[in-house]
Amino acid sequence: MRRGKREISIFSGKGLYGALVRLVAFSLLWAVLTQGGGGWIIGVPAVVLATFLSLGLHAPISWRWRPMGVLRFIPYFLWQSLRGGIDVSRRALHPKLPIDPAVVHHTLLLPPGPSQVFFANTINLLPGTLSADLHEGHLTIHMLDAGLEYVMELKRVEERVADLFGVELKRR
């Protein structure tokens, strides 16, 4: 979804923070690409240019990950992705192609904003789920196997994402 272009000055507090985050991120990327060794004569202008261009393309939005949430989320995400890969391998290699797909509708308990988008993208790597459409807090999901206990599974993922972003889940 594209929002109207908002002008955020990099001299305002929030804008400056967003700009700094990107500056650091691009510098880090340059360091990785050049293996930490030199090239900063080209690197510094490139990093500054990239920061300004990216701010022009997309204004900073306020979201934050909780450090402890990140530590808890990464192993969970890696393990679930591995499960997802194994699950899909089993299905794709099996001679009978055991799939029982369904398109289901899931009303998100996460609050509107970045955490919902993050959730929609995360489930693409988890076992059997693929997000088809996210619209006003309703997520349409394609399942490889409708027989899975997907409602509980999705809720568990939502709890993890809420923990990562430090947000509260809505109560039904």
């Binding site: 992705s81 890969g85 899909v88 693929l130 088809a132 394609h142």
Partner: peptide
């Protein structure tokens, strides 16, 4: 296309 994509993305 959905089942193909599901398979592709994860693996």
């Amino acid at each position: 296309v959905f089942t193909r994509m599901s398979c592709n993305a994860k693996s």
